[in-house]
Amino acid sequence: MKFTIMINEGPYQHQSADSALQFCRSLLAQGHEIFRVFFYHDGVNNGSSLSVPPADDRLIQKEWSELSKEHDLDLVICIAAAQRRGLMDKDEAKRQGFESNNMIEGFRISGLGQLIEGGIESDRTVVFGD
């Protein structure tokens, strides 16, 4: 079955990113297809490359990045939400005139239409948030 997942909270502040990661891993383990994972609201912070948690803690952003690489996942960060919160990939940073960028590998930045398209194209849409 084909799934779209929406994540509305950033990592660490709320359990929703942990829950969504575990849910996505279980989906893939059972042979389901993840059409898209869409990060909205503070959820965009799941795509930051600049997190440095203590050594004995999990690094959620890296876990997404690795899961994406392993399963060729489409991880989409909402551009409007990302712009508000200061999260940018290389192209967007350049466009906005910033020298640095902070998006971890495996994510891409795009519009809200990607969420609606996910809802249309998938058999199930599951939301994680606060």
Partner: peptide, 17 residues
């Protein structure tokens, strides 16, 4: 467990959080 969570989303036609 999470596998059971996945099964529930499959068995029900829709989800609402």
């Amino acid at each position: 467990d999470y596998a059971g969570f996945v099964d529930l989303t499959v068995e029900n036609e829709t989800t609402q959080s």
